[in-house]
Design a protein around this nucleic acid. Structure first.
Length: 490
RNA sequence: CGGGGCGUAGCACAGCCUGGUAGUGCGCACGGUUUGGGACCGUGAGGUCGCAAGUUCGAAUCUUGCCGCCCCGACCA
């Protein structure tokens, strides 16, 4: 039992905050709205980065790095984009400090005012398309498939660890294409990559869809997204991919000569996932005992705990355990042998449960006599005793089984919490209870806005593989061609 | 920016109303007993009570001003 961890059923958000802190993932820093990602949390992020980065490379992308600062005049160029981000930008106005006249501390040197303010990137379309202008002349320069891993700043009013912080880490892909079709294909392909990653690595089932115009990225013609359902019945946007049309090419004058020797504007996409994925991972699987991690993203997949009284006993146990460690490592499994005697075994059990380590092996003097090891799995909290020579194979199988089981559990949860609703009263009732609510919508921004005002629910997405089905808008009764996903969202 | 709350040891908090030796739990250090699901006992270290001014013989406590943080709304990956 976790000592004092709040229960999900009693206070979900407090449970979330506590789990983030207690599992050593992150903490609030003394800088307002910014978090410190601690080593254990960062190790999970690194595993995510590695998997995603491999997938980006596999789909033909390369990494590069662009500046943190965006001159104001660049950000202004794409009007809708500028408007969308203007309210949440941190701005650098000076480049120097000096000593205070009273001798204490520092002050901004008023003589060091910048001619033009620098905006700390809320996203990098502007600086990148300003650069692409120099890189793209001919159709032969296309497609340009670039990704960058970076931090961005969005001055949020209210922040929560991982889910919404003023500064966050992410990757942003920025591609340029010769044709509209190719750009759309790219945006859809990367959405597919995100869905693949979410489901097969994070074990989080997602709905792929497009955003309604209201929820669209500022400056995009189409925004694709993956939406996940959290255990409290709220939706979390886990990744987005945008078809930007020629908006940025026109704003930054990025033209290329096509095969017919005619000048054309390039077609653009951008796509990103952030440290918010950590929030999704935590909220999708974890329980009242702490974090539950899918084996593929767990920094420590197997922890081994010896149970002993004397140094001699420990030596005997270690002798049996060492070969197991070697074999597991040889199989590519990350193992921690915790023979630290500063903590008792009971404490360690609770600690690794809190941290979501998928498999725990415990071996004590009784096991030594019997030639067995106790294997406990984190997701079901079940334990069994296994013969020493079967341990490695059992663990290998268990890790794979758990990866699937965790996904299946989350999928079952989503299915149980997806509701088809056809009248306004049921809609309001169901939205209040939580979950994905599949309902008809007349396609207008006004209706979407009204529904949001009255229920706090938004259209999470219009599913890509939605079943075409005629019906009537839940709110206005107007004709509708397909159901969309409504939910309260993070 | 509106509404509410809080700043006292590393953390969580009590003390404030009614001014007089700054306290409790967790954590930390040391010693001992323990060790198959978050051990126990003993000893000990640790504080400009958010900052500044005022009232007073005396302020964590009363008054005023300032600063910071959290929660609830509007905004958002």
């Amino acid at each position: 039992m976790a000592k004092g961890l709040p229960k999900r059923s009693e206070n979900y958000s407090e449970w979330y905050n506590e789990i983030v802190k207690r599992a050593d993932l992150a903490e609030n820093s003394s800088v307002r709205g910014c978090m410190v990602i601690k080593p254990y949390g960062f190790a999970i992020w690194e595993k995510m980065q590695r998997a995603l980065d491999d997938m980006f490379k596999e789909t033909g992308h390369v990494n590069a790095y662009f500046p943190l600062f965006v001159p104001r005049s660049f950000l202004e160029k794409e009007e809708e984009h500028a408007e969308g981000f203007a309210k949440e930008c941190a701005v650098v106005t000076h480049y120097r400090l000096k000593g205070n006249p009273d001798g204490k501390g520092l002050m901004v040197d008023p003589d060091a005012k910048l001619e033009e303010e620098l905006i700390i990137r809320p996203t990098s379309e502007a600086i990148i398309w300003n650069t692409y202008k120099n890189w793209i002349q001919s159709w032969r320069d296309l497609p340009l498939l670039i990704n960058q891993w970076a931090n961005v700043v969005r001055w949020e009013m209210r922040t929560r660890l991982f889910l919404r912080t003023a500064e966050f880490l992410w990757q942003e892909g920025h591609t340029a294409h010769a044709t509209e079709d190719e750009a759309i294909e790219e945006a859809e392909k990367m959405l597919g990559v995100y869905a693949d990653f979410a489901e097969n690595w994070m074990a989080v089932p997602v709905v792929q869809g497009v955003k309604s115009p209201n929820e669209r990225f500022a400056g995009a013609l189409e925004t694709y997204c993956i939406e996940a359902l959290m255990q409290d019945g709220k939706a979390l946007q886990a990744g987005t991919s945008h078809f930007l049309g020629q908006n940025f090419a026109k704003s930054f004058d990025v033209k290329f000569v096509n095969k017919e020797n005619q000048l054309e504007y390039a077609w653009a996409t951008s796509w990103g996932v952030s440290t918010r994925l950590m929030g999704a991972l935590i909220m999708a699987h974890s329980d009242d005992n702490g974090l539950v991690l899918p084996p593929k993203l767990a920094p420590i997949q197997v922890v081994i705990i010896p149970i002993h009284k004397t140094e001699e006993d420990l030596a005997k146990l270690t002798e049996k355990i060492d070969p197991i460690i070697s074999e597991l490592k040889a199989a590519g499994i990350s193992v921690k042998y915790d023979d630290d005697d500063k903590q008792r075994s009971g404490w360690k059990f609770a600690e690794y449960e809190l941290k979501g380590v998928p498999v725990r092996l415990a071996m004590g003097m009784r096991d030594l006599e019997n030639g067995t090891v106790e294997i406990a799995r984190r997701d079901t909290l079940s334990k069994e005793s296994v013969a020493l020579d079967a341990v490695v194979n059992t663990v290998k199988g268990l890790l794979e089984e758990m990866q699937t089981a965790i996904f299946e559990k989350a999928l079952a949860f989503r299915e149980e919490n997806t509701f088809v609703v056809d009248n306004w009263e049921d809609f309001k009732t169901q939205i209040e209870k939580g979950g994905f609510v599949m309902a008809h919508w007349d396609g207008t921004a006004e209706t979407e806005e009204k529904i949001k005002e009255e229920t706090k629910a938004t259209i999470r997405c219009i599913p890509l593989v939605g079943i075409e089905e005629a019906g009537k808008c839940i709110y206005t009764g107007a004709e509708s061609a397909r159901r969309v996903v409504f939910a309260k969202a993070y």
